[in-house]
């Protein structure tokens, strides 16, 4: 049997929880062989492949994944603080290069300080750096220098999650009001 080009790299990276990005060479091979990989991951590991225009990743049924929650809280607070600062947070997530110092400033002056201090991956500068390194390993951010990073397209998974949550809550609210 002949496997698609970069097969091993695709499987290795996706199985390690990494996002594949559209600017990577092996992403094209994945996109061209979408049907094969969707079936491959489903049949072999019972995992769902999510392939978007800009990124791809595997979805797990494992609900004990704290990393996703920590990243969600991180992006949520950062977005909130950027907005409070009068900045367009979507533009910043898309194009801005963040410095660790800037992130620390936002988190240390946040009104969500109780939540931040109670979360061991966000509570201080070192823990936040560890989280950002973890995000870099999964291709959610790319580290430009030791103390600078930008978000990759993968952050949109979390933004979509926020959007869906808002829609769900608004629908619930409307239902309650109608009753």
């Amino acid at each position: 049997m002949v496997y698609p080009p970069h097969h091993r790299q695709i499987v290795e990276e996706l199985m390690s929880g990494k996002f594949l990005l559209s600017n990577e060479e092996h992403f094209n091979s994945l996109r061209e062989n979408e049907a094969f990989y969707t079936e491959f991951f489903k049949v072999s590991f019972d995992l769902d492949l999510h392939l978007k225009t800009e990124y791809a990743f595997l979805l797990s049924k494992e609900t004990q994944e704290n990393f996703s929650r920590d990243v969600s809280i991180f992006i949520a607070i950062l977005s909130y603080e950027l907005d409070k600062d009068g900045r367009n947070f979507m533009e910043a997530l898309d194009f801005h290069e963040f410095t660790m110092e800037e992130v620390d400033r936002y988190f240390e002056n946040s009104s969500f300080i109780d939540l931040i201090e109670s979360n061991k991956t966000l509570r201080d500068q070192d823990s936040r750096r560890t989280l950002i390194n973890g995000m870099a390993r999964r291709n959610i951010v790319v580290k430009n220098f030791e103390d600078r990073f930008s978000f990759t397209e993968a952050y949109k998974v979390f933004v979509d999650f926020a959007k869906e949550l808002a829609i769900k809550r608004m629908a619930q609210d409307t239902a309650v009001n109608q009753n």
Partner: peptide, 23 residues
């Protein structure tokens, strides 16, 4: 999106976040 984030931050431990694959 911000509405979603504010709702999420009300109690982030009671909402199911994107089910990423555990490496």
């Amino acid at each position: 999106i911000l509405t979603g984030w504010i709702e999420f931050l009300r109690n982030p431990y009671k909402v199911e976040t994107p089910p990423l694959l555990k490496g």
